[in-house]
Design a protein around this nucleic acid. Sequence first.
DNA 1: TTGACAAGAGAATGATCGTTCTCATACTAT
DNA 2: ATAGTATGAGAACGATCATTCTCTTGTCAA
Lengths: 188, 188
Amino acid sequence: MSPDAAQRSVLRAADELFYAHGISGVVMSDIRDASGVSMRRLYAMYPSKSELVAAWLTDRHDTWMAWFAASVERHVAGGADPVLATFDAIAEWVTTPGYRGCAFINSLAETSEVDDTHRTIIAAHKRDLVEHLAQLAARGHSNAPSWFPAALAVIVDGAIVQCTIFASTDPLDAARSAVHQLLETIPT
Amino acid sequence: MSPDAAQRSVLRAADELFYAHGISGVVMSDIRDASGVSMRRLYAMYPSKSELVAAWLTDRHDTWMAWFAASVERHVAGGADPVLATFDAIAEWVTTPGYRGCAFINSLAETSEVDDTHRTIIAAHKRDLVEHLAQLAARGHSNAPSWFPAALAVIVDGAIVQCTIFASTDPLDAARSAVHQLLETIPT
DNA sequence: TTGACAAGAGAATGATCGTTCTCATACTAT
DNA sequence: ATAGTATGAGAACGATCATTCTCTTGTCAA
């Protein structure tokens, strides 16, 4: 297996396993078994589990943001409002089999207070999400109040969490209704 | 130590430790050391760590809901709108030293998909919170749309999560602004 | 006082985990 | 082909954990 293929295989295994079972629910030999990469090579690539987790989070940030942006644009191309298209994208995600909430929120719950590396990646992910939502809001709702993007991010994260807890899309629908109502009151 | 005192001491230790370090970040001997209750007695009370966690979550539900209701009423008595008083209460909580987000959301991230007991307690907690918020909304905003309580719960949970991630109260302020704006559009 | 049982301290047990090591097997360069 | 190096398979190691056991120290009824 080429170094590149090994790297991809490990990150794919890490994503499936860490997302499904949580960080402490996955042991290094699970990663080896799922990726087919030997312990020796695994530790040559990532000198500790913590660094593998950091690499996974970084990779997942890129992958997820790219997926999210593409999904939103697809719905915008179909005629949706850029802000409301956010909820169409999240609805797709939430109804995916194996959905278990936001990997970053979940990982934060498992991250001890001393591990700054993981926290930093997690916060950067959410900062990027807020920024992306701000750009969506700027398209077509250019005079939304300054708190709007941050509020939108709060609502999106709340919906992601509650859809996990209730195993239902009802919270997402309520969130969409609230944002729809909010947009009505914003002069274009 | 009386059986009652031992029970209280164990639950208090469980709350401090599980909340601060997460479930898998706490080992049973930590509970023993913090509570002063011997292993033998600990396992006589709770036959496994998982059952201790369940007892902790149940206890925390009662404690937290009581605190939240009281804090909201305090702010309502000070003249706040019952719905907006929610954000005053959450603001108190978020600025408490040692704040680490919602124990139930955090625990869900650590709970494996097979452990139905914990999931059930977590979902019941959030259901009770939604119901409480619905009752607050009914006071003074009796003709809010039917999605309003669920949306309010989504916004509250999102704010709780994002204040943890960003270690800031900014998300809470944005959330409050959004709800304030929403209430403006609801005919009394 | 004594005998019988309840409870504490904390060591023992067996499983699991992160990480490293060994040995056997390839591959590379000459 | 062969010495030298890299890699894989997976056992070994040392730490940690949930849980149980042992031994000791009360405590209380008669």
